[in-house]
Amino acid sequence: MADEQEKTLYHLSVSPHIRSKQTTTSIMLEVMLALLPAAVFSVIHFGPRVLLVYAACMGSAVLSEWIWQKLTHQDITIKDCSALVTGMLLAMNLPPDIPVWMAIVGSAFAIIIVKQVFGGIGENFMNPALTARCFMLVSWSSAMTSFAVHGVSSATPLTIIKTGEGQLPSLLDAFIGNISGCIGETSALLLLLGGLYLIIRGIIDWIVPLTYILTVLVLGYVFGRDGLYEILTGGLMIGAFFMATDYTTSPMTHKGRFIMGIGCGLITSIIRCFGGYPEGVSFSILLMNIMVPFIDKVTLPRIYGEVKTSK
């Protein structure tokens, strides 16, 4: 018996000995699940061609992560599915008629330049999909700003408001998503459902989306526009629920998340109303991304039983 027991090696480790089942991969899969209704809607709304854009973005994201990590002799992390999410989000932020090669280049830019060069997952300081979108916007501005539904070019609601030309779609159409715009941003309803799912599942918390949306709503009325229309269009829903809540590029503390949400709302409204550009969601989130290290620093929680020390 003594011999037998000496042969058995039990697992030794430091406490805690139980871990939650949630992993980075499971979180990423749930985010994609939450995006799925809006993505399916986009295929119906814009036609099957957008499937090509999704495939191009997601495939390019995963492949470029794999190639980069292979070339730099790092562990391959494509299994965490974060590159897939980046690809999916980028696709949803592109016009339906974007040339496929542009989508591929943009997605590679998001992964290699924005994410991997800064150290990979958890280390990038700007949202990869949004940064890539802005990179594409300045590189191919006409392809990135021409929107069409079923081959008929039509301006986005915010462009109509900015230029004052054309017929605004109804509030209900804007809510359901029966409007022009980027592939995945049109259906406020389905994005809202996806976002609520993430909040209920505890993947994201409510602070950033709620404060962001409320700020835009209120400022819309303050600036003399239709606040409700403001929050249903221009990709605000996808921005508030899926981009501004990106873990890596948003604050970790509750206080910080209030600042993030309100800041994003403020910048979005100012750009939309007073800027030369019809929509401001992407820029507002990217600007706030840059502020995050600073926000985290000034919102450090007071610890339990903290003793004030005079310096």
């Binding site: 697992h11 480790s13 000995h17 139980i18 871990r19 089942k21 992993t23 980075t24 979180i27 992390t77 965490d80 974060s82 990979g120 997952i121 958890g122 280390e123 873990y247 890596t248 604050p251 970790m252 503390t253 509750h254 450090l300 929680p301 007071r302 610890i303 339990y304 039983g305």
Partner: peptide, 30 residues
Amino acid sequence: LFTPEQDFSGQESPCIRCGRCVAACPIHLM
């Protein structure tokens, strides 16, 4: 006395800054 299934510790991967640890800490550390 844990079986291999109960003895789940997972594979360590990079921090994604999700903030779950900050919300969980009863001492309010980072």
